[in-house]
Design a protein around this nucleic acid. Structure first.
Lengths: 251, 251
DNA sequence: TTGTACACCGTACGACGTACTAAGTACAAT
DNA sequence: ATTGTACTTAGTACGTCGTACGGTGTACAA
């Protein structure tokens, strides 16, 4: 029995920082982790996260499916790498010198437009992503926007998590509204013809007086049933108001 | 050729309101939609949304997998029904007579604890769920908590969407933190032994000065890397502060 | 020159959602 | 009472997924 050559599964952290040992023997690699990740991002952007399958991605790269496992240990790790690569290359509006509201607004808008450009990432990105280089660069830049405002270190982290939570949920909702609009082959008119009668019967103004009134008003105000961009700008103002007492507390 | 008996696929809306025509011929039904949905909720609570498969659910109900499709047209509709059933039976703290902050806090806490009890729902529930009876009852109750505060109808909807967005993201993050803790078989110590050296090399305090400092402070403050309950209570206070200017604007 | 670590590929396994078909049931129409 | 038919239930099977496994050939190290 030969001693098993221990090739421990490459760690996600090593992979994120591209710190794995590079092979010195064997055939030349036909791809790189970066190339795989870039192709995956492009595919997910084009056709959504559910179209991103290992087979499909391999096909686009001109390789057999299992080949990708040489570069990436599994699909979850691939998605983590994809998100970190987004974070690494995202736009970071310079904020030095701006008043605090504009600084935080810029941070929020940078994040939001990243997620709008890559809607799958809003659904997939966790609150505390693994500490890859992209995540670290993002975190560093965002924290610098919070420096000098009289917050403690712990408060800075709390405030940032709160702000980014808003950004993520706004992006999720926007992406979902888009997806629903695209998925329903029905026009609004067809939908109402199909479902209007039932809704009219069931949305009893005596049982749901406030809901019927407010729902109707909201539906008319935003031309669509849900106006994502309005929700974002409304929410951003609120979120900055939320932080004002904390930040301006001792000025 | 016999004329095709048109049995149009039951609409999700009809299903939500249990408004489908009931069969008058054929064998007695061995189950009800409610029973299927209840079993599905129980299974998802117990083992998570990814354990909720049609086969597994059918097994728990003592039926063949395909049998469930008599009650529910597909898995997506099943999940929608599950969420609406949660909304229908959730706790709704009475808020009449309370000051506005306590009213909104109660609404937020009811929602949050619902999602904490059913973590899968936080991930699956969309911003604008289909108008089932549970969703309507929830919406009605929540809007009543916003009545009489001097807001327009459209503002009431905006404010509620904003508040519920916070609740959802807080619940998502909490659920994810739990899941990660459960999934990693490693203890914190093992994790640091495995990843500490790389992180120490790569988290260069010159490249990421603020991130390293704040990250360390935050990590020490919350015993775990991410303290969900703290994030919720911190965020709830902020969110109420966010709404104060709007609500107290003309008092 | 040769041994070996490695990239690459084909095949295959066990899950998944669900389409299709057949069997059997109980009410409606006769 | 009988028969037709709408219905529930079940079995089988298809196409998809992630990925385990084993084989083949390459190119560097010894």
């Amino acid at each position: 029995m030969t001693a098993a050559t221990e090739t421990p599964k490459p760690n996600l952290l090593e992979l994120l920082w591209r710190a794995g040992p590079e092979a010195s023997r064997g055939p030349r690699k036909g791809l790189t982790v970066d190339a795989v990740v870039a192709a995956a991002v492009e595919l997910a952007d084009r056709e959504g996260l559910e179209a991103l399958t290992v087979r499909r991605l391999a096909q686009e790269l001109g390789k057999a499916p299992m080949t990708l496992y040489t570069y990436v240990p599994g699909k979850t790790e691939l998605v983590a790498l994809m998100i970190d690569s987004l974070f690494a290359s995202m736009e970071r509006t310079p904020v030095a010198g701006l008043p605090w509201r504009e600084r935080l607004a810029a941070v929020a808008r940078d994040g939001y437009s990243l997620y709008r450009r890559h809607p799958w990432a809003a659904a997939a990105s966790p609150s505390r992503p693994p500490l890859g280089p992209g995540q670290c660069a993002k975190y560093e830049h965002e924290l610098q926007a919070l420096e000098g405002l009289g917050l403690s270190d712990v408060e800075m982290d709390d405030v940032l998590a709160y702000l980014l939570g808003f950004v993520r949920i706004a992006a999720q909702d926007a992406a979902q509204a888009d997806a629903e609009r695209a998925a329903s082959a029905m026009s609004d008119q067809e939908w109402w013809e199909a479902n209007g009668p039932l809704l009219a019967k069931v949305l009893d103004p005596e049982r749901f007086p406030t809901a019927v009134r407010v729902g109707q008003a909201a539906g008319e105000a935003h031309d669509s049933a849900y106006d994502a961009e309005h929700a974002f700008s409304f929410g951003l103002e609120r979120t900055l108001d939320a932080l004002a007492p904390l930040i301006e507390r001792d000025e």
